[in-house]
């Protein structure tokens, strides 16, 4: 699927009033963050993007690809989906072994070598989590962090989707920077929903959500770039402390 941009046409907020942002175009290669208080409509916004909403969701938003209404097959056929969505879910509920699940998943996405693809995802996931995941482990028995790591690896590798939506990557105690590095691709559209200030400043632009609507759009300032590097230093320090504590060391 080759395209240059997606456009979000504004809908309504929770009171049914027009949201402030009426049209917003995101080009490939751009990272946007979505920020706002809990319940402000962040997850709903990225669900709209995932579903390529066509004025048919509660928000009445419309998503255009290169300025045009996308074909319905892009919404339904998993192999044609252009959006990979890392949801907030922290656990799998499907009663399958990891390996079987990954191979089935690769078949849905019409990957040529399902077995190799599954191995690659497990390997990547295992770099993100402390205790490794076995091919034969039941999906439902994975810890929160392991599930999350597997979801991240799956989103990063198993899709050639040009749009990646990330909802709260910082859940479940995995290294958020390592996770983000796994997901980022130079030619992708990345939209990150977050409460984490560092991640909120990792995009060039950020969408501010309020009362279900897109309330404002801000561009990263020079001052904020400085704040970002300070937060990064802090985060590295915090990770170092966490690692030592987990290893059973005293500080």
């Amino acid at each position: 699927m080759t395209f240059k941009s997606i456009t979000i046409l504004g809908g309504v907020d929770k009171d049914g009033k027009d949201e402030n942002i009426r049209a917003l175009t995101i080009e490939r290669g751009e990272i946007y963050s979505v920020i706002g208080f809990t319940g402000s409509g962040k997850s709903r916004l990225i669900r709209d993007i995932e579903q390529l909403a066509d004025r048919d969701t509660v928000t009445k938003r419309q998503i255009l690809i290169d300025g045009k209404t996308p074909d319905y097959s892009m919404r339904r056929d998993p192999s044609k989906k252009i959006v990979a969505h890392l949801t907030q879910n922290m656990n799998y509920i499907m009663d399958l072994q990891c390996g079987d699940f990954l191979r089935l998943r690769a078949e849905c996405r019409k990957m040529t070598d399902a077995k190799k693809n599954a191995e690659q995802i497990l390997e990547t996931a295992n770099k993100l989590c402390g205790e490794p995941i076995a091919d034969y482990a039941q999906l439902t028995s994975l810890s929160g962090g392991q599930s999350r790591a597997l979801m991240i690896a799956d989103t990063a590798i198993n899709t050639n989707a040009p749009i990646i939506l990330i909802d709260e990557i910082e859940n479940a105690g995995i290294d958020k920077k390592a996770a983000m590095d796994t997901l980022l691709g130079s030619d992708k559209i990345i939209i990150v929903v977050t409460h984490d200030p560092m991640l909120a400043l990792s995009g060039k632009k950020r969408i501010i959500m309020r009362n279900g609507g897109m309330d404002g759009l801000l561009t990263l300032t020079e001052k904020e770039k400085e704040v970002f590097s300070k937060l990064q230093t802090l985060s590295e320090y915090s990770l170092e402390v966490q690692r030592n504590l987990r290893l059973g060391k005293t500080l």
Partner: peptide
């Protein structure tokens, strides 16, 4: 997760390839 929905979709489609398959959220109506 998105992956689970897709795998489920696939297993439904394997049993009835003639049917239209549609994902509906009963709470929001999407």
């Amino acid at each position: 997760s998105q992956a689970e929905t897709e795998v489920f979709w696939q297993s439904v489609s394997a049993l009835n390839s003639r049917a239209e398959i549609v994902e509906v959220n009963g709470v929001t109506g999407s």
